[in-house]
Design a protein around this nucleic acid. Structure first.
Lengths: 105, 105
DNA sequence: CTGCTGTATAACAGATACGTGATATCGCAA
DNA sequence: TTGCGATATCACGTATCTGTTATACAGCAG
């Protein structure tokens, strides 16, 4: 039933780099080719290519060559729900850090 | 509205190590002191201490000294929902990798 | 105080990940 | 074929992370 913790950890690692999240955000509104993502994010082409490859291997995005361009697309928009859930949980954590701090002061 | 991607990435990083997830799982059923977590997980005492410190800094668990023992407790059980959501999303990603593979074969 | 248990930290080695610059490859046009 | 734009990969330096060993520190018993 439970995926091994190693697999889960690896999946979390996919979203644990800011630039990779930036690439994902660029793809939020629809498929883009590499150059478009580069312009969207301001990252170097080589770096974008690497992150896109990782996201592809992780099964988060799909690679679709079209002529001389290569388009990438988010496969399941559920990842954005996951990002949102994490962000919400992050805020909760920050809140509780604060109240823990107040309990001390 | 949106937390900076850096903060979000850092939060994901918290859950991106198998041993840290193992420590979290050990705390699922309630507060434990360090030695109990060590026994639960089979990890070394120093390592458990490190991971617990990280989880504390991240605001995921709380540290509560009790006599000569130190108990750690998950602050918001919502993290377990997050873990579950991620696991589900991971399975979805695997599925779509498979169907993409079938589309090629 | 001394000693003991539990916990935290320091220092280190090894592994892993990131970003860059250069280069290779692909697809197409002429 | 050559040339060109788009994408991928290689090689490298650097930084970050992990786990271990050893040590330090805290709290309590005697």
């Amino acid at each position: 039933m439970a995926a091994p913790l190693e697999a889960l950890a690896e999946y979390f690692k996919v979203f644990s780099e800011p630039n990779r999240l930036m690439v994902l955000e660029a793809l939020r509104e629809g498929p883009l080719n590499v150059t478009a993502v580069v312009q969207c994010t301001g990252l170097s082409q080589a770096l974008v290519s690497k992150h896109l490859k990782l996201l592809t291997i992780a099964g988060v995005v799909a690679r679709r060559p079209e002529g001389s361009l290569v388009f990438y697309e988010v496969l399941d928009r559920g990842v954005f729900r996951l990002l949102l859930a994490a962000e919400k949980q992050l805020l909760t954590a920050r809140e509780q850090q604060l109240s823990a701090l107040q309990a001390v002061l």
